[in-house]
Simulated assay, not measured.
Amino acid sequence: MSRIVVVSKKQLRMVAAIALIVVIAVAYTRWDQSRATTGAPVKQRVIHLVTGEFKSVDKDGKEIEAYRWDPGTVILQRGEPVQLSITGVNGESHPFVIEGLGVRGEVRKGQTTVVSFTPEKPGTYPLLCLTHTDRTTSGPMVGYIVVM
């Protein structure tokens, strides 16, 4: 004798719902969200800057020039170890200070100066060239370190 099984739509929906719950439960229990820690120190971010110069002649024939840091603004995260690698392209010497961060150095034409620091407080810190401080010295040569 043959047996006939009648399945209603409601029973099909119930079986599908149970199967979906089982699939989700299995996926959840097998999903490993943990990450292994290596204990390695946080990698230092390296940012490259250059010294730049603009030259032109005014309407009286006088040569004018201005120096700058390029890029002019660097954005960092608080607590992020950073290394500024600054290459002298124009100008013989650019002694500099980053006010508020205690960073000092000097960039010479054709050489690269590297300074490292970790900013702890959010804010905007000026990167000032001590040679080009105002218009009479082809300045001001200023950049900005923005700490978020």
Results as ranks from 00 to 15, higher is better:
residue 68 R to W: 06
residue 120 E to V: 00
residue 85 S to I: 08
residue 23 V to S: 05
residue 53 E to V: 14
residue 69 W to A: 03
residue 147 V to T: 02
residue 6 V to N: 13
residue 125 Y to G: 02
residue 76 L to C: 03
residue 139 G to H: 00
residue 109 K to S: 14
residue 105 G to Q: 03
residue 44 Q to V: 14
residue 108 R to S: 13
residue 132 H to I: 04
residue 62 K to G: 07
residue 44 Q to S: 14
residue 146 V to L: 02
residue 28 Y to D: 03
residue 18 I to V: 15
residue 37 T to F: 01
residue 40 A to Y: 03
residue 50 V to E: 10
residue 69 W to V: 01
residue 125 Y to H: 02
residue 15 V to W: 12
residue 18 I to W: 15
residue 61 G to Q: 03
residue 71 P to I: 11
residue 29 T to W: 11
residue 11 Q to F: 07
residue 108 R to Q: 11
residue 123 G to M: 02
residue 42 V to S: 00
residue 95 P to Q: 09
residue 135 R to W: 04
residue 110 G to L: 14
residue 55 K to R: 15
residue 13 R to E: 05
residue 114 V to C: 07
residue 75 I to T: 14
residue 17 A to C: 11
residue 84 L to I: 02
residue 31 W to V: 14
residue 86 I to A: 09
residue 89 V to S: 15
residue 87 T to W: 01
residue 31 W to L: 13
residue 15 V to R: 07
residue 45 R to N: 04
residue 122 P to I: 01
residue 15 V to T: 08
residue 89 V to C: 09
residue 68 R to G: 13
residue 49 L to C: 06
residue 47 I to C: 12
residue 102 G to Y: 03
residue 4 I to A: 03
residue 66 A to T: 09
residue 43 K to I: 08
residue 145 I to T: 03
residue 8 S to W: 00
residue 130 L to C: 11
residue 35 R to G: 08
residue 28 Y to H: 10
residue 140 P to Y: 07
residue 90 N to H: 04
residue 71 P to T: 12
residue 64 I to Y: 10
residue 51 T to G: 01
residue 36 A to P: 01
residue 35 R to T: 13
residue 129 C to E: 13
residue 132 H to M: 02
residue 11 Q to I: 09
residue 137 T to D: 08
residue 108 R to W: 04
residue 82 V to R: 00
residue 83 Q to K: 02
residue 75 I to D: 10
residue 100 G to E: 03
residue 140 P to Q: 04
residue 89 V to P: 12
residue 115 V to C: 02
residue 61 G to F: 07
residue 55 K to N: 11
residue 48 H to L: 13
residue 140 P to W: 06
residue 65 E to W: 15
residue 17 A to G: 10
residue 86 I to W: 02
residue 110 G to Q: 13
residue 27 A to S: 15
residue 129 C to Q: 06
residue 91 G to K: 00
residue 44 Q to H: 10
residue 95 P to G: 12
residue 54 F to W: 14
residue 29 T to R: 10
residue 52 G to L: 09
residue 134 D to Y: 02
residue 112 T to I: 05
residue 25 A to W: 13
residue 115 V to K: 04
residue 61 G to W: 05
residue 41 P to A: 05
residue 105 G to L: 04
residue 101 L to R: 08
residue 63 E to F: 10
residue 90 N to D: 09
residue 85 S to Q: 13
residue 133 T to R: 09
residue 41 P to N: 05
residue 2 S to L: 11
residue 24 I to M: 14
residue 141 M to R: 05
residue 61 G to P: 04
residue 23 V to Y: 06
residue 37 T to E: 13
residue 38 T to E: 06
residue 49 L to K: 07
residue 51 T to V: 01
residue 67 Y to L: 15
residue 142 V to L: 06
residue 50 V to A: 04
residue 135 R to A: 14
residue 62 K to N: 14
residue 25 A to R: 07
residue 139 G to T: 11
residue 122 P to E: 02
residue 80 E to N: 00
residue 90 N to Q: 07
residue 19 A to G: 03
residue 94 H to S: 07
residue 62 K to P: 09
residue 80 E to D: 00
residue 4 I to M: 06
residue 139 G to E: 03
residue 139 G to F: 01
residue 60 D to Q: 15
residue 20 L to V: 14
residue 61 G to R: 07
residue 31 W to M: 15
residue 46 V to R: 05
residue 121 K to R: 11
residue 91 G to I: 01
residue 144 Y to T: 08
residue 89 V to H: 14
residue 53 E to L: 15
residue 102 G to T: 10
residue 12 L to W: 09
residue 128 L to G: 05
residue 62 K to D: 11
residue 19 A to S: 07
